[in-house]
Amino acid sequence: MSILHIVNKSPYEKNSLDTAVGFVKNGDTVLLIEDAVYAAAKGGSVAAKLDGLDVSVLGSDLAARGIAEDRLIDGVSVVDYSGFVDLVEAKDSTQSWL
């Protein structure tokens, strides 16, 4: 059973990402939206938390925050709203770590 883990809180302010990552199993994907997209920026102290995980970020939330795609950690995929829907569809269930 694969899960899409959605995180929307800044990893520097809340521990939602830590908890979500702790629950990730093989085949799961982490989708970062809203303030959680900061986690995927290269050079940040939380970047290592995403090592080895399948991570997607929502492009419009990146753009709103002025994060260029070349500033992302290698291997992170950028999705638009329909890509978001595709992810939800592709997984057996969705967990929103609010």
């Binding site: 492009g59 419009s60 939330d61 753009a63 709103a64 925050r65 002025g66 994060i67 260029a68």
Partner: peptide, 9 residues
Amino acid sequence: TRGQSTEGI
């Protein structure tokens, strides 16, 4: 930060 663009949200 620079370069913020909010049309998408």
